[in-house]
Amino acid sequence: GSLMYASIFGNVSAIIQRLYSGTARYHTQMLRVREFIRFHQIPNPLRQRLEEYFQHAWSYTNGIDMNAVLKGFPECLQADICLHLNRSLLQHCKPFRGATKGCLRALAMKFKTTHAPPGDTLVHAGDLLTALYFISRGSIEILRGDVVVAILGKNDIFGEPLNLYARPGKSNGDVRALTYCDLHKIHRDDLLEVLDMYPEFSDHFWSSLEITFNLRDTNMIPGSPGSTELEGGFSRQRKRKLSFRRRTDKDTEQPGEVSALGPGRAGAGPSSRGRPGGPWGESPSSGPSSPESSEDEGPGRSSSPLRLVPFSSPRPPGEPPGGEPLMEDCEKSSDTCNPLSGAFSGVSNIFSFWGDSRGRQYQELPRCPAPTPSLLNIPLSSPGRRPRGDVESRLDALQRQLNRLETRLSADMATVLQLLQRQMTLVPPAYSAVTTPGPGPTSTSPLLPVSPLPTLTLDSLSQVSQFMACEELPPGAPELPQEGPTRRLSLPGQLGALTSQPLHRHGSDPGS
């Protein structure tokens, strides 16, 4: 009898404990919600809404976190579960008819179910419309201010047509639940991603989709105040780019002037030289400038040598048109050559190039014969006009050509200096018209024969001689050997007369 009593008592207590286990969990969670309300000092109306929603959600799901349970299964099984949970929507909604099984599984994985109690606001006026909503159960109302403009029910759709707008718009009203509602919502990016994977279904979906109420604000059109608020930074940046392009296009129409201050000032006329910023005076940081632009901040801005204009002085008759350009485009679109090309026009420029290279940067340069637009006047290309890779490749080509020119210049200078040193070592320090008596009659020769300089066969020296023939050397430049009979510069000019005159010897006659 005691054994029977113990078994009955144990079973009854276990049954009672299981009955009250759900209630215990409910009270535990309710205590957490109330502690949250007390800690954050939530006001009474919002506090009442929180408690009511918790009670309804507990009775609806029995305190089970559906998302946590669903995430515990593998992905393939999750797709089947989501397809079952959203079967009513996918079967009865017209846009989803005719979709393949794979497309429906992908869509079912992207849908999220939302449960809303009465009085809950789903979308506020001015919120971004980031999702498309399908009503599965219940009814909602749409308000503009305090005026109800629409009441939607089961199988209705609200949001915005995503295929017509590249960016999400703003809501033009509040969406509030009238009863307990079940909503299926899919985010904008998720829907577009699935439709991109199934393009054959995309056309059918957009053609058959009928949005019951379009929440997009109709005033959000390009150029409206609301649109400016939504895309303020983007609009200002776009206007700045367009104004920069218009100014650079105007600059290219004036090829007669070359400016070292950047493309923003290349198009300024002579009357605007004294102004601080020219056409860019209202925004000094709008356009890029070269490193020399920092010198323009000092006094005497109108007389600054940074602004270059072609000189009108005539060229000498024998002067060549100019050196070879550094870039391939210089032959086609440049009416002034790079300062480095002028360094190779003569030997005198070679000796004085490194010492006063900055001073020569603004000297007169030889002109190319074609009066085409200036290379320095070409505006900086924006990322939309020329690819970045093209600019980098041009810079690399320019750097390689500069290296080759520097190597060639160093070799030419070394060769010229070597020839000058050899000339100085071969010439005796001094010569006299009267020579010392020699031991015999073989001493009648006034000077030792001097062998002429070897013929220069280097390509670089031939180019130097060509430049010497075309360029007029300055007075202080050293002379180079030329073709024809060679003669030492330090010898007297009348050596031929010395050989014809008898030598005057000093000596005593033994017979006297």
Rank of each mutant, 00 (worst) to 15 (best):
V194E: 01
G159H: 01
E210W: 02
P439L: 09
Q401C: 15
L491T: 06
G173L: 08
W206K: 06
F213P: 01
G262H: 12
R176G: 02
L491G: 07
T444R: 08
M197K: 10
R307W: 03
P168R: 03
R307P: 10
N163Q: 08
C181Q: 03
G145T: 08
E210Y: 03
P168N: 03
F158A: 03
S235P: 10
R167S: 08
V175N: 03
L420P: 04
E364K: 15
P502T: 12
A150G: 11
E257F: 12
G232Y: 11
S341A: 13
S235V: 12
D296Y: 08
N163D: 08
E210N: 07
A266W: 07
D251I: 08
C368E: 12
E297Q: 09
D396I: 14
N403E: 04
E297I: 10
S224H: 10
R236E: 11
V391G: 11
S333P: 06
T455M: 10
S382H: 15
P199Y: 02
G287D: 08
H204C: 10
F134T: 02
R240M: 12
E331S: 08
S313Y: 12
A411R: 11
A430S: 10
D174M: 12
D174P: 01
M327S: 12
R367E: 10
L419Q: 08
R307F: 05
Q418D: 06
G126D: 03
L420M: 04
L380A: 04
S381N: 01
Q401S: 12
I135Q: 01
C470L: 05
F351S: 05
L402D: 03
R422V: 09
I135W: 01
L417V: 14
P263W: 06
P317T: 11
R388V: 15
I135L: 06
D189K: 04
T425S: 07
P452Y: 12
P263M: 09
S286E: 12
E328A: 13
Q363S: 12
C470S: 10
R385H: 11
D356Y: 05
S290A: 05
Q254M: 13
S304K: 12
P339Q: 11
L375M: 09
L191G: 01
W206V: 09
Y362H: 09
E229I: 13
S293P: 13
G287I: 15
P379W: 01
N214K: 02
M327N: 06
L419V: 10
E257C: 13
G138H: 01
E324Y: 08
D249E: 12
S345E: 09
L215E: 02
Q418C: 06
S286M: 15
R408Y: 03
L458V: 12
P222T: 10
G298Y: 15
F205Y: 03
T499W: 10
P492G: 10
S136N: 11
F158N: 01
V148E: 03
M468I: 10
S208Q: 10
P369H: 09
L191F: 03
M424G: 09
Q494K: 14
R505S: 11
G159K: 01
A497E: 10
H204Q: 09
A177K: 01
F344L: 09
E295R: 10
G496N: 05
G355N: 05
S465A: 11
Q254F: 12
N349F: 03
V450N: 13
S500F: 07
T457W: 06
Q418M: 11
R400A: 06
F311S: 09
A397K: 12
P325C: 12
L453N: 15
Q494G: 12
R240P: 06
L132R: 02
L129M: 03
G145V: 03
D509Y: 08
G323V: 11
M197W: 06
G493T: 09
G438F: 15
H504W: 06
L340C: 09
T415C: 10
P225L: 10
Q463K: 04
A150K: 08
V194W: 05
W206A: 04
T252D: 07
K154L: 03
P454K: 12
F311I: 12
F244K: 10
P446A: 11
I350P: 09
R245E: 08
A177D: 01
T336I: 11
I350Q: 08
P199K: 04
L461A: 12
S283G: 10
P284I: 15
S313K: 09
V258A: 14
G287F: 05
Q254P: 10
S445E: 13
E295V: 08
L458Q: 11
P314C: 09
E324I: 10
N155W: 07
E229R: 12
L261Y: 12
D459H: 06
T252E: 11
L380M: 11
D189A: 08
P379R: 06
A477H: 09
D249N: 04
S302F: 13
G346S: 13
E257P: 11
I350F: 07
R246E: 15
P299Q: 04
V427I: 11
G267E: 10
L128N: 08
N377M: 05
P255C: 12
K185M: 14
S508W: 04
S460F: 04
I135K: 01
K250N: 13
A433D: 09
M220Y: 08
L128F: 09
F234S: 12
V258Q: 09
H504G: 11
R188Y: 11
G493R: 07
E257R: 08
R386A: 10
K241P: 10
S443V: 06
P502N: 09
L143P: 02
L402C: 04
P510H: 09
V416W: 01
S508N: 04
T435W: 09
S333R: 09
Q423T: 06
A268T: 08
E231S: 11
D203M: 13
V391K: 05
I186Q: 01
A477P: 10
L395G: 06
S333Y: 07
P291G: 08
D296F: 12
S290L: 15
D127G: 03
F351I: 10
G511F: 01
P373T: 08
L152V: 02
D182Q: 10
P314T: 07
L491Q: 09
H184W: 04
E253D: 11
I151K: 01
L409F: 15
Q482Y: 06
P317Y: 06
S465H: 10
S374N: 01
R246Y: 09
L192N: 13
P437F: 08
P439F: 15
Y362P: 05
S259Y: 08
G153K: 08
Q494R: 10
R247W: 10
R236L: 11
V450F: 08
R394T: 09
M197G: 04
R144A: 08
P263G: 15
Q418V: 07
P478G: 11
Q421H: 13
C368N: 15
S286R: 04
E364Y: 04
A433H: 10
R400K: 11
E200T: 06
P310Y: 12
P305N: 15
L380Q: 15
L417I: 04
S312V: 06
Q254H: 06
R137T: 11
G359V: 08
S304F: 06
M220E: 12
P428T: 08
E253P: 09
V416K: 03
L183D: 01
G287Q: 08
P428E: 08
A150E: 01
G153F: 04
P339N: 12
L152M: 04
H184S: 08
T436P: 11
F134R: 02
G233E: 11
D509Q: 07
S139N: 15
D127K: 03
D189N: 12
P492E: 06
F134V: 06
Q482H: 09
E297R: 06
R404E: 03
D190C: 03
S445W: 15
L491C: 14
G153V: 06
D296V: 14
S334V: 12
S289T: 05
T415P: 04
S500R: 09
T212C: 05
T212H: 03
G281L: 11
S224W: 09
L340H: 12
P492F: 11
I157C: 11
W206L: 12
R246W: 13
P369I: 09
S460L: 06
E229C: 10
E471C: 12
L340R: 08
L191W: 01
D335P: 10
T442A: 06
G507I: 11
V194G: 02
A343V: 09
E328P: 04
S410R: 11
P339E: 11
E328V: 11
S224G: 09
H184A: 08
T425Q: 13
T455L: 11
L230Y: 12
S312K: 08
E160S: 03
V149G: 02
N403M: 12
L456K: 08
G440I: 05
S352R: 06
C368K: 03
